[in-house]
Structures are given as C-alpha cells and as structure tokens.
C-alpha cells in the first residue's frame, strides 16, 4: 500500500507515459498497416513485393533489435535529433504495423468474393472497390484481432522503459532498485497494465457490437 501512496507521482507519470506511447504507436501502426495491406493486394508487383518484405522483416525480428536499430542505425541514415520518445514510437509503430497489415489482409480475404466481383462489374476501379466495398466490410472481421494486437502493443511498450522513455516498467525498476519489496510493486504495476488492457478490449468489444448492428 505504502509503495503506491508514497510514489504516486512516479506511478502516475509512468501510467501516462505508457498510455501516450501506446496510443501514438497504435495510430502509426494503423496507418502503416493499412498502406502495407493495400500494397500487398495491389496489382503492382513491386509494391506487393515491398509489402511482403516489410511484413516478413518486421514480424520475424525481435522488438528489442528494432529498438537498437532505431537508436543506432536510423540516426546514421536519416540524421539526428530524434527524441528517445520518437525512436520508441518508430520501433513500436513499425513492428506493430506488420501485424496490423496481416490482420487487415485476412479481413479483406473474408469479404465474400461476390462482393468484389459485383463492384468490379459495376465498373469500380481497384481503389474504389477497396475503399467503398471491401474495406468497410472487412472492418468487422478485423476488429477482434486488432484488439489483441493493440493489447500486445501496450505490453511491448514496456521495452521502451529500458531506452530512456518514462513508462510503467521504468517505475518498477526504479522502485525495486531503491530497495522496495518486489511483490507489491509488481502487483501495482500489473494492475495498471490490467486497467489499460481491459480498457482496450472493452472499447473494442463496444466497437464490435456497434458494427454488428450494421450487418
């Protein structure tokens, strides 16, 4: 009890840090993931190849390695001046985008073929078919996996704690290095993550219900 009350500011900063980082990288991952999914189903071979390479690369690399790339390789290529927070955002966003891309792509493939065929026969272009017919319908099937992807993202953001970003895991380390018993700190930090992850799954369940009505 005391650990929490005595270090409320630290816990609060850590909590806010985790929430902000998660939200920002979720946004980046969504955008990138959608673009990559578009690439992967497009009629242009090099783009398809690029999308595939992107997913293969980011899905099979440990996130920690991506953090190292963001810290030590990216500055060498694109110049300096990125804050630790931006680097964490890039690593998390790129990593998660591969999973988003795959979720969206399998969502697209669950839209009945007839729908796309009908759209095609109405004379819609590839982009129109995708934007007006397929993606809106794919949304429904994509929502549940997205929920789990973003929950994973929340937890993955803990890795940023070791890279100069203030978040919940950093709080655990800070306090246990100060000599407090590990068990209560662990429980409080775990509780904080539970709050975030349950909020996410709750929101997505709500979204799912909203979308179901439209079916």
């Amino acid at each position: 009890m005391n650990v929490l009350l005595d270090h409320l500011p630290e816990f609060r900063d850590g909590f806010i840090g985790t929430v902000l980082l998660t939200a920002a990288s979720a946004l980046l991952a969504m955008v990138l993931g959608l673009v990559m999914a578009g690439f992967r189903v497009s009629p242009v071979p090099p783009l398809r190849f690029f999308g595939t390479a992107w997913v293969t690369l980011f899905r099979n690399t440990p996130l920690t390695l991506l953090f190292l790339v963001a810290w030590f390789v990216v500055p060498a290529v694109f110049g300096t001046g990125m804050s630790p927070w931006t680097k964490a955002l890039l690593a998390l966003g790129f990593y998660t985008s591969a999973f988003v891309c795959e979720a969206v792509r399998s969502g697209v493939s669950t839209v009945p073929l007839g729908q796309a065929e009908a759209a095609r026969s109405l004379g819609m272009t590839f982009f129109q078919t995708l934007r007006l017919i397929v993606l809106p319908q794919a949304t429904r099937t994509v929502v549940p996996p997205l929920s789990s992807i973003f929950i994973a993202l929340t937890k993955n953001s803990a890795i940023a704690g070791a890279f100069s970003v203030t978040e919940l895991f950093g709080v655990q380390k800070l306090l246990s290095d100060k000599g407090f018993a590990i068990a209560p700190i662990f429980l409080w930090v775990a509780l904080a993550y539970l709050v975030i992850t349950f909020t996410i799954s709750g929101l997505f369940r709500l979204l799912e219900r909203r979308l179901e009505v439209a079916r």
Partner: peptide, 21 residues
C-alpha cells in the same frame, strides 16, 4: 500475441470462420 482473437473463437476469425475465401 494477446487475448482477444481467441475470445471470439466462435466469431469470424476462429477456426470455423465463415466465408469461403
């Protein structure tokens, strides 16, 4: 990687997913 997908085992992404594609 996380919960969610499987909670909806009976849902669209489960093994018995509807939709032939």
């Amino acid at each position: 990687e996380a919960p969610g997908v499987l909670e909806t085992a009976a849902g669209p992404v489960g093994p018995q997913a509807p939709g032939g594609p």
